[in-house]
């Protein structure tokens, strides 16, 4: 183990009791500093964070608070400047291919149709499956994300929300044990957003996935997550952590009107609103 960082976050959470074994994801004093033309820019202050196996954790905070940096660290796209990022108890030193990462920007291949984009992972050596099976699974996922009839459209011919769903299906198709999602439903209209949240929730439950979910929508975070973590404005650090003790399976459509939801929302909003105001100044 590396020397623990001197700067510990004051209100860092204690180890999650549910993660009895090794936690799925663990950030230990992990921070990230970029050097832009010799100038230090702190994207993420030292953060301690644990996500247990099959836990659904949501990160909320103002834009530029380091939420995406956190996901990039877990995915192995970035290395922490200090501290450590562990996955299954092992430091992440290369690209972490056991996670499925749905980035904010949909990175679809523009020369492939929706169906071909969804199936691309199954063409790769590391995840190859027989062609017939691949076709079948692509068809299943197209149904799942509601894109029937748009299989042969190119990304340029799809709306922002449809592209997002293709990106989601493309990741779900290889059934990763862990999902990293960066505002996946940001571009969707309110109704579709609810539908997708519901589907995601069921799917995560069915497939026993671990999820680290970044959003700026507090309601979405509470509706989906087992635990909500509020980030402070840049440079990001953890400001508050709350367990969402609402029973599962949840009804994302109706739960917004329950008392428990309202109380939690108010409590977390108190933490968040100062940070959002700070973020606006930047």
């Amino acid at each position: 183990m590396p020397p623990r960082d001197a700067v510990m976050v004051a209100d860092a959470p204690a180890r999650d009791p549910r993660a009895a074994g090794v936690p799925k994801i663990e950030l230990v004093g992990a921070s990230k500093t970029f050097y832009v033309r010799g100038q230090e820019v702190t994207a993420l202050q030292p953060v301690d964070l644990t996500v247990g196996d099959q836990e659904f954790v949501a990160l909320v905070g103002p834009s530029g608070c380091g939420k995406s940096t956190t996901l990039n660290l877990v995915a192995g796209l970035l290395r922490p400047s200090r501290g450590e990022v562990l996955y299954d108890g092992v430091p992440v030193t290369a690209l972490n291919r056991r996670v499925g990462y749905i980035t904010q920007k949909d990175t679809l291949l523009p020369w492939r149709t929706a169906a071909a984009n969804i199936g691309v992972a199954l063409e790769l050596q590391s995840r190859a499956v027989p062609r017939a099976e691949a076709q079948e699974r692509v068809a299943q996922l197209i149904d799942l994300v509601g894109l029937r009839g748009f299989e042969n459209h190119y990304p340029a011919e799809l709306s922002g929300g449809m592209r997002k769903r293709v990106a989601l299906a493309r990741t779900l198709i290889y059934e990763p044990e862990c999902l990293l999602m960066d505002e996946p439903f940001g571009a969707l209209d309110a109704q579709l957003k609810l539908l997708m949240q519901d589907q995601l929730q069921q799917l995560v439950h069915q497939r026993r996935m671990t999820v680290l979910f970044v959003t700026h929508d507090l309601g979405e975070a509470i509706a989906l997550a087992d635990r909500v973590i509020v980030f402070s404005a840049r440079p990001g650090r953890i400001r508050a952590v709350r367990d969402v003790a609402l029973p599962r399976p949840r009804d994302v459509f109706k739960m917004r009107f329950t008392e428990g939801f309202g109380r939690l929302h108010e409590e977390l909003w108190d933490e968040l609103k100062d940070e959002v105001a700070k973020g606006v100044d930047v």
Partner: peptide, 23 residues
């Protein structure tokens, strides 16, 4: 980002070249 996300999907260097860089 296109390349990074493709690598995360599990593509190796050759596949990355075939399926992303070349097209």
């Amino acid at each position: 980002d296109l390349i990074a996300s493709f690598q995360l999907l599990g593509g190796n260097r050759r596949e990355e070249f075939q399926k992303v860089v070349a097209p």
